[in-house]
Simulated scan of single mutants.
Amino acid sequence: MGCPWVMTRLDLDRICAARPLINPVFLGTPFSMCEPLGERLGCEVGVKLETANPVRSFKGRGTELVVEGLAGASVVCASAGNLGQALAWSGGRRGLGVTVVASRFATPAKLERIRALGARLELVDGDHELARERAAAIAASDGIRLLEDSLDLETCEGAATIGLELVESGIPFDVVLIALGGGAMATGVGQVLKELAPGVEVVCVQPAGAPALTLSWRERRLITTETIETIADGVAGRRPIPEVLADLLVIADDAVLVREESIVAGMRLLFEQAGLIVEPSAALGVAAVLEDPDRFAGRRVATIICGSNVDLTAHRRWVSP
Rank of each mutant, 00 (worst) to 15 (best):
I114H: 03
S74C: 12
G97P: 00
V67T: 13
P54G: 12
G46F: 15
A86Q: 07
P54Q: 09
L87E: 03
A78N: 07
V47G: 13
A116N: 02
L96F: 07
G72V: 06
L65N: 04
K48S: 10
E50N: 11
V98C: 00
S79P: 03
S74E: 15
V100E: 08
A86E: 05
G92R: 08
G95W: 12
A109R: 13
G69Q: 11
T63I: 01
G97R: 15
G46M: 14
V75A: 12
A86Y: 09
A119Y: 05
V55Y: 05
R104M: 12
V98T: 09
V55F: 06
R113M: 13
S103M: 01
L49G: 00
V67G: 02
T63S: 14
A52L: 15
A119C: 03
V100H: 02
S74N: 06
A52W: 12
L49K: 13
A71D: 14
A86H: 04
S74G: 15
L96G: 04
A119M: 03
L96S: 07
L70Q: 04
R115W: 05
P108H: 04
E112H: 13
C77H: 12
G84F: 06
R104S: 13
V75L: 06
F58G: 12
W89P: 11
E112G: 14
A88Y: 09
V45N: 00
G95E: 12
E50Y: 02
N53P: 08
R104F: 03
I114L: 10
A102Y: 01
L83F: 15
V66Q: 06
R61C: 07
R94V: 02
L96Q: 02
K48G: 11
F58P: 13
R56P: 00
R94A: 08
R115H: 08
A88K: 05
V47Q: 00
K110S: 05
V100Y: 09
I114R: 11
V45W: 11
A88H: 05
A119D: 11
R56W: 14
V47F: 13
L111Q: 10
T51C: 02
C77I: 01
F105E: 14
A106S: 15
V76T: 11
L87D: 10
T99S: 15
T99L: 09
A71Q: 12
S57K: 06
G46S: 11
R94T: 01
P54T: 14
T51K: 02
A106C: 12
V67S: 06
L65A: 03
E64N: 13
L70G: 07
F105D: 15
S90Y: 08
K59Q: 04
L49W: 13
V76S: 01
V66N: 10
G118K: 05
V76Q: 00
G81Q: 10
P54I: 12
G46V: 08
G84R: 02
R115E: 14
S74M: 04
E64Y: 05
E50T: 12
T107I: 08
A80Y: 09
E50G: 09
R93M: 05
R104K: 14
E112I: 00
L87R: 11
R94C: 07
K48N: 09
A80R: 09
G72T: 07
F58E: 07
A78R: 05
R56E: 11
E50M: 07
K110R: 15
V67C: 10
K59W: 05
S103V: 01
V66E: 08
W89D: 06
T51A: 01
N53C: 14
L65I: 00
T51F: 00
V45D: 01
